[in-house]
Amino acid sequence: MREKILAVIEKNSRIDLKDLAVLLGESEVAVANEIAQMEKEHIICGYHTLIDWEKTGEEKVTALIEVKVTPQRDMGFDKIAERIYQYNEVEAVYLMSGSFDFTIILEGKTMRQVAQFVSEKLSPIDSVLSTSTHFILKKYKDHGTVMAKEDKDERMLISL
């Protein structure tokens, strides 16, 4: 049941508990318990809203920063990641395979703000060897959702 619950709420976290139970053919109590348990186990880590900020007129820039580091003695990748992810403006931190070590997704109001973060907060960290900052110009699809999609049903109203 867990997987089925997760598959549904990953796409629609606002669904009514009652509706969810009906969709899955389970009792409301069972579904509620399962969700509570998964929240407790941090399988479910939060319920967020996917926003197309471009449409709001709010100025926002998102940057993707590739970071190379040298893990220090007694301080593996996890510790360095921790020093980075504590910053509020950091949206995401991933450890990568390949030619660099971390990908950081950073949100700022302006490019200048992002640049400041890189030069004043990120680069000075001892283990950080180098950074490479890429600005995101347009989001076409995010979290499995196509941003510009028009939901128009082009089928005939009735067909047998």
Partner: peptide, 26 residues
């Protein structure tokens, strides 16, 4: 012809109707 021709004609004139009438995947 299909027995519900008249019904079909009414449907086709109502473009603001919500349909649960299709026989194909969404």
């Amino acid at each position: 012809p299909s027995g519900i021709r008249k019904f079909f004609d009414i449907v086709s004139e109502m473009d603001d109707a919500i349909s649960l009438g299709v026989g194909e995947p969404d």
